[in-house]
């Protein structure tokens, strides 16, 4: 999942209005940042160390403790941990992840259906945006408010269009390869 994680962070503001938004956003994307960092360091198990259940549990706890130290609020700390943990649950809908070391990657892998993925994530964004907007006093269609909604939906659209084009290209390449192999088999002299 991509912007759906940020929608969760926006929704969480409704539950605890004084929770630091930057911390909620960072927690919502936490496993992805950890994965990127590990990939830069050359780890070949970056996804396991960032998105598996033990990894998410440890990191969510660390985030909660950091939040407790920063804000002094245990409710905010629990909320941050929950937002962090939601990352894995949502990723199981759109992708496949290894939940345990040595375990197979599982998940509904909605990325293979980009249109459906877009509908799901855009819906989450609209819900999250509406919940978040209830916590600020500004009118709904002010420029900054609209910027949040438009940016998130545009980012998701770019990701899903890219994914759709990649799927079409892969399918075309597979078809061409199969065609080539069939032609080769056809032109090869019999009995060789």
């Amino acid at each position: 999942m991509y912007v759906g994680h940020l929608a969760v962070a926006l929704s969480a503001v409704r539950l605890k209005r004084d929770a630091p938004l930057w911390m909620l956003l960072l927690a919502a994307q936490g496993p992805d940042w950890i994965q990127l960092g590990l990939e830069v360091l050359g780890s070949d198990r970056a996804q396991l160390y960032s998105h598996s259940m033990p990894a998410v549990f440890v990191a969510a706890l660390a985030f909660a403790l950091a939040c407790l130290w920063q804000t002094g609020s245990s409710r905010t700390a629990v909320l941050i941990a929950a937002v962090y943990a939601s990352h894995l649950v949502l990723d199981l809908v759109t992708g496949t992840k290894p939940l345990w070391p040595g375990g197979h990657a599982i998940g509904a892998n909605l990325y293979n259906r980009p249109a459906l993925d877009f509908v799901l994530e855009a819906s989450l964004v609209v819900i999250g945006w509406l919940l978040y907007h209830g916590t600020v006093r500004a009118r709904r269609w002010t420029r900054p408010a609209f910027a949040i909604l438009a940016t998130l939906i545009a980012c998701q659209a770019m990701l899903d269009v890219g994914q759709g084009l990649r799927l079409i290209r892969n399918e075309r390449n597979a078809r061409l390869k199969a065609q080539e192999e069939a032609e080769q088999a056809h032109t090869q002299p019999k009995g060789m």
């Binding site: 912007v3 940020l6 926006l10 938004l21 930057w22 956003l25 960072l26 994307q29 600020v136 900054p144 408010a145 910027a147 949040i148 940016t151 998130l152 980012c155």
Partner: peptide, 9 residues
């Protein structure tokens, strides 16, 4: 997207 959200917020 995070930068846009924080700036708009």
């Amino acid at each position: 997207p995070v930068a846009v959200i924080l700036s708009a917020d």
